[in-house]
C-alpha cells in the first residue's frame, strides 16, 4: 500500500457514512426484497404461461402457435364473466375471479378438445404443416376477437380484495394480486404433476408419449388420450390467460405477447420435462428481474436471449433433456 492511498482513505470515510443513512439502508433492503419477490412472481407467471405449452409441445410434439390465442380466449372469458356478474349478480363480484378461472378452464378445455379432434390430429407427423396451420388458426382467432370484442382493449375489473399490497414493513410492498398468482401457480403445477404421475390417466398419457404403438397394442385408446392431453394443455392456457388479466392487458393481440416467452421457456427447459420447464422459468425470471434492475429492459431481454442461445448451442435438447423417444 502506497503512502498516497493511505492518505486518501480518511476522505472517503467521511463521504460514505453520510451517503448511506439508516433510512437509506432500509429502502435498499426493501427494494432488494421486492426485487426477489418480483423474480418469484415472474417465475410463476412464466411457469403458468408455459405449463400448457410444455404439455402440448412436450408430450405430443405439437407446435401450437395458437397457444397464445387460447390464453386470450381465457382472458376474454374472464372479461365476459366479470361483465355478466357485475350487471346481474353484483353480490358475487368478490369471488368472480374463481368462477372466471373455472369457466376459462372449461371453455378452453372444450375448445382444445374440439380443436384436436377436428384439426390438429390431421397434422400429426407433419411438424412444419402444424406450425403453419396453427399460425393461421392464431390469425383467425385474433381477427375473431377483434370482430366480436372490438379492436380496443377491454378492461377487466380487479377484485377489491386483490388490489393493493401487503406491507410487512414500511419499505416493502408486495402486490396482493401477485401473491395470489404465486399461490395459484403452485396449486396448478402440483395438480398437473399429480395428474400426470399419480393417476391412471396420466400413466396412459405418458405411455402413449413413450411408445404409441405398444400402448395401442395393450389397449389404450391413443386417440382419446391425445385429445385429452391437448385439451388439458389448452385448459391450462385458459387459466393463465384468465389470471393475467390482473397484471396485463386484454386485447385481440394479447396472445402474441406471451407466445414467444412461452416457447423460450419450454425449449430452454427441455421438451417433455415438467421439471425442466419449472427450472427454466425460475432461471429466466430471476435473471430477467435482476438484469432489468441493473440495466434497461431491452438489454435484459438481449442478455436472456444470448444465454438461451448459448445454452441451446451446447445442450440442444435444453437444460433437462429427457431420454424419451418423441
Amino acid at each position: 500500500m502506497t503512502f498516497r492511498r493511505g492518505n486518501q482513505a480518511p476522505r472517503r470515510k467521511a463521504v460514505i457514512p453520510a451517503a448511506i443513512s439508516i433510512e437509506e439502508t432500509f429502502v435498499t433492503f426493501g427494494i432488494f426484497v421486492m426485487q426477489l419477490f418480483n423474480g418469484l412472481s415472474l417465475f410463476t407467471i412464466l411457469l403458468l404461461m408455459a405449463l400448457g405449452l410444455a404439455i402440448v409441445f412436450g408430450l405430443m410434439g405439437v407446435i401450437n402457435m395458437a397457444h397464445g390465442e387460447i390464453m386470450a380466449m381465457g382472458a376474454y372469458t374472464t372479461y365476459l364473466t366479470a361483465s355478466f356478474i357485475e350487471h346481474h349478480l353484483p353480490g358475487l363480484m368478490g369471488v368472480y375471479l374463481f368462477i372466471a378461472i373455472l369457466l376459462a378452464f372449461a371453455v378452453t378445455f372444450a375448445f382444445g378438445y374440439v380443436l384436436e379432434r377436428g384439426f390438429i390430429r390431421w397434422f400429426y407427423h407433419r411438424p412444419l404443416d402444424t406450425l403453419l396451420a396453427t399460425w393461421g388458426l392464431s390469425l383467425i382467432l385474433q381477427q375473431t376477437y377483434r370482430s366480436v370484442f372490438g379492436a380496443q382493449e377491454v378492461s377487466v375489473p380487479l377484485t377489491t380484495w386483490l388490489s393493493g399490497a401487503w406491507e410487512p414493513t414500511e419499505t416493502i410492498q408486495l402486490p396482493l394480486n401477485r401473491i395470489f398468482i404465486v399461490a395459484l401457480t403452485i396449486l396448478v403445477t402440483l395438480g398437473v404433476w399429480y395428474i400426470l404421475h399419480k393417476t391412471r390417466w396420466g400413466l396412459r398419457a405418458r405411455a402413449v408419449t413413450q411408445n404409441r404403438a405398444m400402448s395401442s397394442a395393450v389397449g389404450i385408446d391413443t386417440n382419446r388420450v391425445d385429445a385429452l392431453i391437448f385439451a388439458l394443455g389448452s385448459g391450462l392456457a385458459g387459466i393463465a390467460g384468465s389470471v393475467f388479466t390482473m397484471v396485463g392487458s386484454t386485447n385481440p393481440g394479447t396472445g402474441q405477447l406471451y407466445i414467444v416467452d412461452s416457447f423460450i421457456v419450454v425449449v430452454f427447459g427441455g421438451v417433455a420435462s415438467l421439471l425442466g420447464t419449472a427450472a427454466s422459468s425460475f432461471l429466466i425470471a430471476q435473471m430477467q428481474t435482476a438484469l432489468e434492475y441493473l440495466m434497461s429492459g431491452s438489454m435484459a431481454k438481449v442478455a436472456i436471449l444470448l444465454l438461451v442461445i448459448t445454452v441451446l448451442y451446447f445442450r440442444p435438447n435444453g437444460l433437462f433433456a429427457s431420454k424419451v423417444r418423441a
Binding site: 426485487q35 407467471i45 378492461s155 434492475y293
Partner: peptide
Amino acid sequence: HTEFSSIINKIKAAKPDWIYSTVVGGSNVA
C-alpha cells in the same frame, strides 16, 4: 412488455416527484 415490476422498483428507489410516461399500447395497461 407486460412486466413492469423492476422498473417500478427503480421508481420507488428514485422517489421522483413526477413520472413522465410515454409507454404505449398494451404495455400501458400492464
